[in-house]
Amino acid sequence: MAKYCELFYSFFKIGGFTIGGGYAMVPLMEHEFVDRRGWMSGDEFLEYLSLAQSMPGVLAVNMATVVGYRMRGIAGALVSILGNVVLPISVIVGLAIFFRSFRDNSVVNSIFLGIRPAVVALIAAPVFSLAKRQHLTWHTLWMPILAAVLIWLLGISPILVILAAALLGFAYGRLFKRPKTDNKDQ
């Protein structure tokens, strides 16, 4: 029981008090699980992180799933997820109720006229920092550019673009990469 409380409390803290989304939570999670609680080694943490990043969905919730599962099975995963999202959901619901009754207020309106271009900038900036982190080269740069043009200019569904990219990645791996001989499933 104590372990469930610890899981809930850890994820409650990380989810409820981090602004800036899942990537901002990563250093906090590492500090909490590796340094403070000693639940796993740094290498194990990175392995879970790359797993959570590779899977679809919300990064923080995926991390809660894998860490909670590792500690206490499926119940541990569910407790961790609940801890991670309960405060953010409550805050947003509260704000949504409050904000709908103030939408036509002229002061609120003028504030949001200033905020809107800032939001666009906050979404545009990670494009460049992520491109750097993923080590994009001239061989791979065309993929995100083509994806952006297909979705933005031609109005193609992002879902189709993702499926096509998965297929392309599969074909590329088959054609150009050598299979690893030490694979366990061979």
């Binding site: 590779s54 979404i123 494009v127 993923q134 992002p158 990645g169 599969f170 694979n183 499933d185």
Partner: peptide
């Protein structure tokens, strides 16, 4: 299966394409 060639290359392509998705979101705004 983390070392699996097919799994690795599909995920590598998806991680790169995600950058384009974010760019599309910014452009449409």
């Amino acid at each position: 299966h983390r070392g699996n060639r097919d799994v690795e290359s599909v995920f590598a392509a998806l991680r790169i394409t995600a950058i384009g998705l974010i760019a599309a979101a910014a452009l449409s705004l």
